[in-house]
Computed example of a mutant assay.
Amino acid sequence: MTVSWAAFRAAEPEFADVVRARFAAFQHHVLATLRPDGSPRLSGLEGDFRGDELWLGMMIGSRKALDLRRDPRFSMHANPGTGTGMHGGDVRVSGRAVEVSDPEEFARYAAGAEQGEAPERFHLFRAELSEVVRVTIEDPHIVFQVWHPGHALRTIRRADQDSTVLEDV
């Protein structure tokens, strides 16, 4: 099951705002797609929030766009930044990339770009989410926040030295 960013935000508004802020902290992120042989491909990408959607724009004919056309499953990891602090946590979203083919929807997206920002031709995908994960350190615990469509946000705290779940809220 996948849902739009808007549906995710409606279900978990505070968590969605934290995740979006983490992506907004840097322009470039890492996109994982599947190659024709099923092996993973990692590529740089600028995730773009416009309206209440997460968009993935790519150069015409890029390998990552061709991967998504063939198999729409993806995962996008927010840029961890510099140093070891990872302010805001380690964040990733996974799901399916739905290619935009409707000229009106494509034009609405392009119209929201700043002057000269959007190229004339590009692939555009709308992210449909199946999982959102945030990992933070709250010494002495590693804290996992995990959300799936149709389920409440789940928080798991684990001790650094032990894989035992200490709390699962």
Rank of each mutant, 00 (worst) to 15 (best):
T2R: 11
S4Q: 12
A10Y: 08
E12R: 14
V18I: 12
V19K: 02
F23Y: 12
F26R: 13
Q27F: 10
H28W: 14
H28P: 10
H29E: 12
V30R: 03
L31K: 11
L34F: 07
R35K: 09
G38E: 04
S39I: 03
P40T: 00
L45C: 15
E46Q: 15
G57Q: 09
G61C: 02
L66S: 04
L66Y: 04
R73P: 02
F74K: 10
M76Q: 14
P80H: 07
T82I: 07
T84G: 10
G85S: 11
G88M: 03
V91H: 06
R92P: 05
V93D: 07
S94I: 08
A97G: 10
V98W: 15
V100I: 13
S101Q: 08
D102K: 01
P103I: 06
E104G: 03
E104K: 10
E105T: 08
R108C: 05
Y109M: 06
E114V: 10
G116E: 05
P119L: 03
E120I: 03
H123G: 00
H123W: 07
L124N: 01
L124T: 01
L124Q: 02
E128G: 09
E128C: 04
S130D: 15
V133K: 07
R134I: 06
I137M: 10
I137H: 06
E138V: 01
D139N: 02
H141R: 03
I142G: 06
H148L: 12
G150M: 02
H151V: 00
L153W: 04
R157T: 01
A159M: 04
D160L: 09
D162C: 01
V165H: 09
